[in-house]
Amino acid sequence: MKEKKETKNKWITKDLVRTYLPILALVFVVALFAALSGGTTLKMTNIKQIMLQSCTYIVAGLGIIFTMSLGNMDMSLDGIVCLGGCLGLLAAESLGSWVVIPVIFLVTILCEMAIGSLNILLGINSVIVSFAVSFFGKGVAGYIIGSRTKSLSLPGSLSFLYNRSLYFAVTIVAIIVLSILFHYTKLGKRAMAIGSNASAAKASGIHVVKYKLLAYLVAGVMMGLAVTLVVLRAGSAGATSGSGFHVTVLLMMVIGGASLTGGTKEKVYSVVVGVLLFLCLENGLTVLGVDPNMIGLIEGIIFLGSVTLTFDRDGVPYIL
């Protein structure tokens, strides 16, 4: 009898929970709030709003999944949004509107590569480095804004780029490309191998430094795309742009089943499911008139539960 019970328990593993629980939770949340709101949450205008909100978070999460697969935490997103957006719009004032997007991508790539280089070459903890970059970005953005205005505005000639169809198309293409890159190429597979055990990966012949830097390069490109979407949607950028962005994206990814310890447990679908689950939950609670403070409390409890279910204690040494 004991053998039969042990066999049954083997089917319910942490990996299985991490894979299917977020999907089941998403279905449950959508159905629950549809019933409680009398179908309000399923109205097309509401669905379109949720999908539009999800685009930026999904694109940012797709970049962060690469650095998380290494077992590294990136807490720089809010600072990168500030710095990239402000420098891009500032450059446009002098050189023309065409430089906004290239400058944003250049800034985000340089920031991510700086984080990766300091972490890899000098051995500085990725959390500390990314926080430093975040503070640096917000500080420089605040200096750029100064006292002349509250924010920098997007050139009117680029307003046509704020288009829902374009947002959705860019996000879908990003999901497809990053899924292939992460799950079916050497870069993704070796990044996960490094995250699982860097020493073993190095012993097996993997150029650890090379693939770590490439992972940060991908993250930089995706951050560039995310910042571009943020600036286009807001129509401006300032010292407070992207405030709390890194915390929200991390929360979404963990709720979707992403592991804080990296390795082969990371999946691209965790980003998509996590973002949709978070936004559907927040939207449903808002529609029902729940107090914003209570919403934050509920999200915190869910985050703690998700971390408890997905945290790999054996992988802790690799994220320090």
Rank of each mutant, 00 (worst) to 15 (best):
P155E: 06
V208S: 12
F160P: 09
G284P: 07
A201E: 10
M222H: 02
K212A: 05
V209W: 10
G220I: 07
I172T: 07
A174G: 09
Y269I: 14
T149N: 13
M222K: 05
R233T: 13
K210R: 15
T228V: 01
H183L: 06
Y162T: 01
G238M: 06
S157F: 11
K267W: 03
R148Y: 11
H207K: 14
T149V: 06
L213H: 13
V209M: 13
N163Y: 00
S204H: 12
V230F: 13
L279F: 01
I206V: 15
F182P: 14
K265W: 00
F278S: 07
V273L: 05
A237T: 08
C280L: 09
F168I: 14
T264R: 14
F182Q: 12
Y167G: 08
A219I: 02
S165Q: 06
V177H: 05
G224A: 04
G195S: 11
A191V: 15
T185P: 11
A226R: 02
L225F: 08
V173W: 01
A239D: 04
I206E: 06
M252P: 02
A169R: 00
I176L: 15
A191P: 03
M253N: 09
Y167D: 14
G263L: 04
S157W: 10
G188W: 06
I175M: 13
C280W: 13
G220E: 03
G188T: 11
V221M: 08
T261I: 05
Y184M: 14
S199F: 09
G263Y: 03
G235E: 08
L181K: 10
G224Y: 07
V221E: 02
V271S: 03
Y211G: 05
I255P: 00
S153A: 15
M223G: 03
V209G: 03
